[in-house]
């Protein structure tokens, strides 16, 4: 279970972490049971604010240099990563 979720979340675990989390995982989830009135709507934003829309005007763009300023690896103004094969 923990291994599958860690894979989905793209997180490498050390063997110690894996064992610890395997032991802790089920008790955590079990402790997180809540019982709600099903008729209630869900709340996403705590305040009832709607329609915060902005004008279609360019602002706050980064220069290419700023964009890449913290890139671990880059080439030709682009971020570089190991090869990605077609079809995901």
């Amino acid at each position: 279970m923990v291994d599958n979720i860690a894979a989905t979340a793209h997180i490498a675990l050390t063997e110690d972490e894996r064992q610890r989390l395997t032991a802790e995982f089920d008790p955590i989830i079990d402790a997180l049971v809540v019982t709600a009135d099903e008729q209630l709507p869900v709340t996403v934003n705590p305040l009832p604010v709607n329609n915060k829309l902005r004008a279609d005007v360019v602002a706050n763009e980064l220069s290419n240099e700023q964009a890449l300023s913290a890139a671990p690896e880059s080439q030709d103004g682009q971020f570089m990563v190991p090869a990605i094969l077609d079809g995901e």
Binding site: R54, V57, N60, L62, S63, N64, A67
Partner: peptide, 27 residues
């Protein structure tokens, strides 16, 4: 064909210098 992106104020344009039509949010 809006002027800016859907969720950022970076330019919505085709064929410009790579990584120049971006805000910090797009990254």
């Amino acid at each position: 064909n809006t002027v800016t992106k859907m969720f950022s104020t970076a330019t919505n344009a085709f064929g410009d210098q790579p990584n120049s039509n971006v805000t910090a949010g797009d990254l």
